[in-house]
Design a protein around this nucleic acid. Structure first.
Length: 553
RNA sequence: AGACCCAUGGUGUAAUUGGCAACACUGCAGAUUUUGGUUCUGUCAUUCUAGGUUCGAGUCCUAGUGGGUCUACCA
């Protein structure tokens, strides 16, 4: 067993140990087991990254298995979306997509096997009765009156359950363990229930369906999963997971639990995500404000950034709350390298260069990305009238450290000339309607002989060639970083009413050719991604993440 | 009430398994910059508490404190 990579976390320590002991002949096999009843979110991304990265690191494989044992909630279209999201994240699973439902026949046989060993029985108790029999935390439960049925009777009944002789809820198959067990999950857990309902894959072939505890671990075994990684809340299930491995005498997969990842301002509860969609609070599962992979993709988050984020936040057994700023940092880090810089004016005000001849135009050449020369250059049309950012002008400079437009100031227009502010015009309400400047003809970008020193540089767009673009600006969906952590308050009470602002902006003409999904840095403003809602007539951009700013004006 | 899990800066993760508490993000201060971006530099901790073992404890032991999980015919 040469060169076992060094462990970076406690799960990898277990794996290294197993590898050193020659367990499973050095084979490593993990799996990602989503239930196809919703969309994947940032929390799933963490689980995906852990499972795939660990397997990759130790030369193993990772399966994708749909945990589809509940026919009432699961749908095929979720399967496709899950597959798309995982591929987008950058992972390819081993072989075909697998389904727990493919193992229904095996699972049924396992049920019989348990019965034959006297380790399971058919119970006619009602759900309420079963709950009552459970006892309570610290209080032992009581045996079901049907607990001691004979093996023959159990076999007969279980077979007839499968054959559809009994109505929903009338009978269940239960493991026969210990009604006084300190772990409530081991107090004769229900293994199979009757549901006369069509399944998205098996149709009406079955009317009994296994529960999680009698499907998940067994699927792991069938697939030869060596390390079954899941989140902390399944810790108590591990006892049952192991009990069933021994009782069934099947391949001993090993369950290891890690702490799920929570991120400020992001919801990772399928139920609540669904509520946001159904109540129309967001436009859909892929709304850019959602913590779903589909939403983050539409928002413009690169999958590399999400992967980096998931890996850097580590793997432990500790409750953790990640700062949203760290996710944004990971996004900026990738985009800084990859996004080309274009100019767009989000809140435009007209600036007239009074000594620039009317009707004259010229073009400047500018770098597409100073971080990546291979991205080349492009041309910027320039003229006497340009749009500049309203925030970049002050009627009076606030202080010595203010470097942008204000009366008497010299400011560089990015990749163009240095201009001098002469004055401005305003309406009755004092709103600036136009800024008047003169330019220094010998200050042309790259061949500046003017000797004028401009401390500030601003972005701009020529009025005659500018295109109108729609920009959707986002803030966090919630006003509180942990909207679910307030007792007695519904998370919807923390919805941020300003989470979406739609504005009309002016963009440089080259932006018209952008394609959906493409991300740009709008110089000095932030990163923006072309939304699929864009049309030939109107480009639509989503604000992905802003630029950091050390300006404390 | 019982069982199990966890505890290191504002946040998250490390610490060669007993040897000077490190890294990233954030914050603050500064340098560079035709993006107030990027880049670079500096700076921010009685390791939950109290005892104990030891030459030496974040690490081991004991007790306490705090947080989390578990009583679905959901996964």
């Amino acid at each position: 067993m040469p060169n076992i990579p060094e462990a970076d976390n406690f799960i990898e320590e277990f794996i290294v140990e197993d590898l050193k002991n020659g367990k499973h002949n050095g084979r490593i096999h993990t799996r990602f087991p989503p239930e196809p009843n919703g969309y994947l979110h940032i929390g799933h991304a963490k689980a995906i990254v852990i499972n795939f990265e660990i397997a990759k690191k130790y030369g193993g494989k990772t399966n994708l298995r749909m945990d589809d044992t509940n026919p009432t909630t699961e749908e095929t279209h979720f399967v496709t979306n899950i597959e798309n999201d995982i591929r987008w994240l950058g992972y390819e699973w081993e072989g075909d997509t697998l389904y727990a439902s493919d193992y229904f026949a095996t699972l049924y046989e396992y049920g019989l096997r348990l019965i034959d060993k006297g380790l399971a029985y058919v119970d006619d108790s009602t759900p309420d009765e079963i709950e009552a029999q459970k006892g309570d935390i610290g209080i032992p439960g009581t045996n079901s009156p049907y607990r001691d049925r004979s093996i023959e009777e159990n076999r007969d009944l279980f077979t007839r359950m499968k054959d559809g002789e009994f109505p929903d809820g009338s009978k269940v198959l239960r493991a026969k363990i210990d009604m006084a067990h300190p772990n409530l999950l081991l107090r004769d857990p229900v293994l199979y229930r009757i549901k006369h309902e069509d399944h998205h894959r098996t149709g009406d072939q079955w009317c009994i369906y296994p529960l999680y505890d009698f499907a998940h671990g067994q699927s792991d075994s069938v697939e030869g999963i060596t390390h079954s990684l899941c989140s902390l809340e399944f810790r108590h299930h591990r006892d049952l997971y192991n009990w069933l491995i021994e009782a069934l005498e099947i391949f001993p997969s090993r369950q290891i639990e890690f702490a799920r990842m929570n991120v400020d301002y992001l919801i990772t509860s399928k139920r609540r995500l669904k509520k946001l969609v159904e109540e129309g609070i967001v436009s859909g599962w892929d709304d850019p404000r959602m913590g779903t992979l589909a939403g983050m993709r539409r928002r413009g988050y690169p999958s590399l950034a999400i992967r980096n984020f998931c890996m850097r936040t580590g793997v432990t057994k500790r409750e953790n709350q990640q700062e949203f700023g760290f996710l944004e940092h990971c996004v900026r880090e990738v985009l800084n390298e990859s996004a080309n810089r274009y100019m767009a004016v989000l809140n435009p005000v007209k600036l007239v260069i009074t000594n620039y001849p009317e009707g004259q135009t010229e073009t400047f050449v500018t770098d597409n990305n100073p971080e990546d020369e291979s991205q080349g250059t492009r041309e910027l049309p320039f003229s006497r009238e340009i749009w500049v950012e309203r925030e970049d002008f002050r009627k009076e400079p606030q202080n010595r450290k203010y470097f942008r437009l204000a009366p008497g100031k010299d400011v560089r227009l990015k990749s163009a000339y240095i201009i001098h502010v002469d004055g401005h015009e305003e309406d009755e309400d004092g709103n600036v309607t136009q800024i008047n400047c003169t330019y220094y003809p010998n200050s042309r970008s790259g061949e500046d002989t003017s000797g004028v020193k401009a401390k500030g540089t601003i972005h701009w767009v020529s009025v005659d060639t500018a295109i109108d673009v729609e920009v959707r600006q986002y803030e966090n969906l919630f006003t509180d970083p942990t909207p679910m952590d307030h007792e007695g308050k519904d998370f919807l009470e923390f919805i941020n009413p300003n989470s979406l602002t739609v504005i009309e902006a002016k963009g440089e003409p080259a932006l018209a050719k952008a394609e959906a999904g493409q991300t740009f840095q709008f110089l000095r403003k932030g990163y923006f991604t072309v939304d699929p809602d864009s049309t030939e007539e109107k480009m639509v951009f989503n604000s992905t993440v802003g630029l950091k700013s050390s300006w404390k004006g």
